[in-house]
Nucleic acid binder design. Structure first.
Length: 435
DNA sequence: TCTGGGGTCCTAGGACCC
DNA sequence: TCTGGGGTCCTAGGACCC
């Protein structure tokens, strides 16, 4: 055994996930540099290894890298979440078939928990897991194992760096573990972000090993209890458990930057109504209702020379609701209260809080229940599911949507939309004949 | 010209109660 | 003259994640 613990955590991480998804249907891009952009084609959020090697940074604005991208003929895609979501589901399905304890951590990552001693050859089992995922989905993955989730995360990054390309890394024994942690920069630890990292570096804590050597009280003071948990996990004591069932959502947010800045109240109303409809749909899909609706608008803070304004308004409903019309009415009233003319708005959003299950009902003494017309919303959802998004929509959400975000380089929804299925053309040699 | 979106958790401080 | 203390709840803001 590489380490002694009663349980082992593994992290399975899809390599350059969005890029790998795009390549599934574009095998011609296999050894080419590829990047995927954020919503609104704003930032680079996924890069193939070739693109990383060319010096394309994670999260950098697209327009700043355009010259480099053109010069090297890098393939560029807008993000295609229906595709990525569907491929993610397939990867997770394979993992859940093969492992009994799986936590879907994000669209491209899953933790697993294995009781110590379950497999006499852990490495061999991981090779099988990796090969099976790749065979069934076409998505390459890396696997890291360790006695805690935080160490499994670090092991995974070693697996990705491994030049042998095996893509699997198992954390070593204690004495070798220290030597390894001495090579891990504080900024690369799961749970330590930019702000905490710079604070630690100012106090001469630069590596994971140096962090583990600090006193608990000092760590807690610098990084709060979450940071202390991280440090204990680095020392090998599990503090973060595997969450097999996804916890119920506490908030739902729909917000977007506009394709171009917006000035009129009318355009903002369309956008806010649109986002509210989407948020309400997410609510119903999750079987929830909301009690608190937050609407916010803001100008572009990157534009130093322009007048800046941002504001938000919170409204609390008497009765929880997931009815699109009810929520839009409230959201538009909030928008009207915070709107100021003379600004160039760049972003708006709707945040729902205080979520309760849809069967929850708090009876009121002096008011009648609000808009309990779920059958109507159910019918609308069914129609939109069958005939396509926005077949029926709220009038307030508008039709022109001139403010809508850019998405100029999107690949087709290959796996989730009948009209966008890839078409395969086969040509047969002359000599071919059907018997 | 052009800088993402959607979440969670923790803490400090204010309001309020008795 | 002399003006408490302890608790809870809520919110805003900051930090983190992918």
């Amino acid at each position: 055994m590489p380490f002694t613990a009663s349980e082992i955590f593994g992290l399975i991480d899809c390599n350059n996930f969005y890029v790998s998804c795009e390549r599934l249907f574009r095998p011609d891009l296999t050894n080419r540099a590829v990047v995927v952009l954020s919503n609104n084609d704003g930032c680079i959020i996924a890069r193939s290894n070739e693109a990383k090697a060319l010096g394309i940074g994670m999260g950098t604005p697209y327009f700043k890298q355009e010259a480099l991208i053109r010069k090297n003929k890098i393939a560029v895609f807008s993000s295609n979440y229906p595709l990525y979501g569907d491929i993610s589901q397939r990867v997770m399905d394979v993992l859940m078939r093969l492992e009994s304890e799986v936590e879907v951590y994000s669209i491209d990552e899953a933790f697993i928990r294995i009781p110590a001693g379950k497999h006499h050859d852990l490495k061999n089992h991981m090779c099988f897991l990796k090969a099976t995922v790749e065979k069934h989905t076409g998505i390459p993955v890396s696997i890291g194992l360790g006695p805690t989730k935080t160490l499994a995360k670090i092991a995974n990054s070693f697996a990705k760096q491994d030049p042998s390309g095996a893509g699997i890394f198992i954390m070593p024994h204690k004495q070798h573990l220290d030597a390894l942690l001495a090579t891990v920069d504080i900024t690369d630890i799961w749970g330590i972000g930019r702000s905490h990292a710079s604070r630690l570096k100012k106090q001469s804590v630069h590596t994971a090993l140096e962090l583990t050597n600090q006193a608990d009280s000092w760590i807690r003071k610098q990084l709060t209890v979450t940071g202390l948990r991280t440090a204990m996990e680095l020392r090998g004591t599990p503090c973060i458990s595997l969450e097999k069932a996804a916890p119920s959502k506490k908030s739902i947010c729909t917000s977007r930057s506009f394709g171009q800045t917006v000035q009129s109240l009318a355009d903002l109303q369309e956008a806010v109504a649109t986002y509210t409809s989407q948020a309400a749909y997410k609510l119903r899909r999750a079987g929830l209702r909301t009690t608190v609706i937050d609407v916010f608008i803001r100008t572009n803070s990157f534009k130093r020379g322009e007048p800046q304004y941002c504001n938000r308004r919170t409204f609390t409903l008497e009765t929880p609701s997931s009815h699109t019309g009810t929520l839009i009415k409230v959201a538009l009233a909030s928008l009207k209260a915070i709107y100021r003319s003379g600004y160039r708005y760049q972003k708006a959003g709707v945040l729902l809080n205080g979520l309760v299950p849809e069967n929850y009902e708090q009876l009121r003494l002096f008011s009648t229940p609000m808009s309990q017309t779920t059958p109507v919303m159910k019918a609308v959802d069914e129609i939109n599911k069958r005939w396509g998004r926005d077949t029926i929509q709220a009038a307030a959400a508008g039709l022109a949507k001139g403010w809508r975000f850019r998405q100029l380089k999107k690949s087709p929804a290959y796996t989730t939309c009948w009209s966008e299925l890839p078409i395969v053309k086969a040509s047969f040699p002359e000599s071919f004949s059907v018997a």
